[in-house]
């Protein structure tokens, strides 16, 4: 399972390199790094986890993780807010964690049952 997450590490590295370069050109490097981390958490982490359920190659999964993660997190937040839950840092992080963990847990379960 862990080897499937390796490309996600490459995405994180590319985002970090982009942030460091941008830091030299346009303001605080720390701010760019924090934005890169936010983009990674919001878009790539949940999107990549969801796409693990499809038979894609690593590049396809990394590229389409961006729109898939964005739509998954934002749509869940949309409905939570309709039901009166405030959009806060905790809510956003909670949604990211739930989508990611649930997706990986389901995949893990599927792999175990198919191994049996």
């Amino acid at each position: 399972m862990l080897h499937k997450l390796k490309p996600l590490g490459i995405v994180a590295a590319v985002l970090a390199i982009g942030a460091i370069i941008a830091g030299f050109v346009a303001g605080s490097m720390l701010s760019w790094l924090s934005l890169s981390l936010a983009v990674f958490l919001y878009f790539f982490l949940p999107g990549y986890s969801l796409l693990l359920h499809l038979q894609l190659d690593d590049i396809e999964r990394c590229i389409f993780a961006f729109p898939v993660g964005g739509m998954a997190v934002s749509l869940v937040l949309y409905f939570l807010n309709l039901f009166g839950i405030a959009l806060t840092r905790i809510t956003v992080l909670g949604v990211i964690i739930v989508v990611t963990v649930a997706s990986i847990a389901l995949l893990h379960r599927k792999l175990i049952s198919s191994a049996r």
Binding site: L30, S31, S34, A38, L41, G70, V73, L77, L87, R89
Partner: peptide, 17 residues
């Protein structure tokens, strides 16, 4: 449509930008 506002807003909640 709310997502053009809520996506940047909620991403911004995870960063100091």
């Amino acid at each position: 449509p709310p997502l053009p506002y809520s996506i940047p807003a909620t991403v911004a909640m995870l960063t100091n930008v």
